[in-house]
Write a protein that binds this DNA or RNA. Structure first.
Length: 373
RNA sequence: GCGUCAUUGGUGAAGUGGUUAACACGCUGGUUUGUGGCACCAGUAUGCAAGAGUUCGAUUCUCUUAUGACGCC
């Protein structure tokens, strides 16, 4: 069975929506945040710890799994779920982002993208068909079309060609797709331009995918305004009965803004990455737990947080772990940060039910940005 | 007791008779948005053992003292 989205309720004062994703591995309430396990692992966490954070879908990366250990090995292991011991839903990225983020030199042609492995420099060639074939074997529940993820600085002219090629790639990928248990998403591109987003969205929807992603946001210093424009210009053309996924976004305020604009699911490396670098999300803004001022702070990261780290450890201890380079520090902070974002989406769902999401946003931002300033 | 050599920031250390004393670690801030990450960026010695002298000018030359290493009675 292919995962299916069910729209439950639309919030009265915004475009926010409450929904449910029915998958082979259980239902997921949306809006939802998905943590990222790039190489079929959430850095530093066991699968039990990830589950305890309240997250449902885990994202794994096609490019990284393709290079190591290789999709055939994962296939023989029984697919990603068995391989990484996760009995919940898994989403795989197409590799399009890696082409953008880690290939120093790349050769984009109609056929696909030629670039060099970040591991050994060997020549790689990724095509829409290849990306889908790998994802089919990985056996994720959600697969992404292979797209071009252009930089935020890309011109209107460049993007116009790029989104058209991405559309052709989407069609090829859809044709190649062959896994009856896997949903396939199309990706809307077009930078911050209304005409391009509209065109990309309409044409992608014509191909009738199982869900729609909004891509190309939050790249290399794109402004918040441009990100919100990208969402606002894409959403109106997406069907209500399909799930909407804003790729790569995970700053708490961006999640709130995304939900209000009609986005259902998000993923981001932010909670785990900043955790490994010593930072924690809190209601009162982001804090640097490796700061000297926490040296003798024997309180939890957040007093009223129900995560494993907050229930059992103090700021001073976590600071110590970070300070001496014990990976447990990053693990505990990852748990807290993932829990923070899943809790945020729980509250957003509640706000949608109560039709007071705009008030929720106001109060959240007021508190979140107060202490930071 | 005598002789030789050393003494530079929190640490390991480069270095020069003349505007801001290299670099590394540490420390202190910050950055991070479909994860190439124990990453990245920035700041961090008004002072070169102490005192005196030579000099226009000394951390760099000279002397004395202190401390240390090695060698000799």
């Amino acid at each position: 069975m292919i995962a299916k989205y069910e729209l439950i309720k639309e919030e009265k004062n915004s475009k926010a929506r409450l929904g449910k994703l029915h998958t082979n591995y259980g239902d997921c309430d949306t809006p939802m945040f998905m943590p990222v396990g790039t190489r079929a692992a959430l850095k530093g966490l066991t699968i039990e710890q990830v589950k305890e954070c309240g997250s449902r879908v885990i994202l794994a990366n096609t490019y990284h799994c393709w290079l190591r250990p290789g999709e055939d090995i994962i296939d023989r292991a029984g697919g990603l779920h068995k391989f990484m011991n996760y009995d919940g839903p898994i989403l795989t990225d197409s590799g399009g982002y890696q082409v953008f983020s880690l290939a120093k030199s790349k050769d984009i042609s109609e056929e696909g993208v030629k670039f060099k492995s970040h591991i050994d420099g060997s020549n790689l060639f990724l095509t829409p068909e290849k990306s889908i074939e790998i994802q089919n074997k990985l056996d994720s529940d959600f697969a992404m079309s292979f797209d071009e993820c252009p930089p935020a600085s890309a011109s209107h002219e460049y993007l116009e060609n790029s989104i058209k090629r991405t559309l052709r790639w989407a069609a090829r990928g859809k044709k190649a797709h062959n896994n009856p248990n896997q949903a396939l998403f199309g990706i809307v591109q077009g930078g911050p331009y209304e005409d391009l987003r509209k065109y990309s969205a309409i044409e992608t929807v014509k191909m009738d995918f199982d869900g729609y992603s909004i891509g190309g946001v939050a790249n290399d210093g794109e402004s918040k305004e441009d990100m919100y424009k990208a969402i606002d210009y894409s959403i109106p053309y997406l069907p209500k009965d399909k799930v909407r996924y804003l790729m790569g976004v995970g700053d708490p305020i961006d999640i709130i803004e995304g939900v209000i604009r009609g986005v259902d699911i998000f993923d981001c490396v932010l909670p785990t990455r900043i955790a490994r670098h010593g930072q924690a999300f809190t209601r009162d803004g982001k804090i640097h737990l490796n700061n000297n001022k926490f040296k003798e702070d024997f309180t939890p990261i957040e007093a009223d947080c129900d995560c494993y780290a907050c229930k059992n450890y103090t700021r001073a201890y976590i600071r110590h772990l970070l300070n001496v380079g014990e990976s447990l520090g990053g693990s505990l902070l990852s748990i807290h940060n993932i829990r923070f974002l899943t809790k945020l989406t729980e509250e957003l769902r509640e706000a949608i039910k109560n039709d007071n999401i705009l008030e929720y946003r106001e109060e959240f931002i007021k508190r979140y940005e107060k202490v930071n300033k």
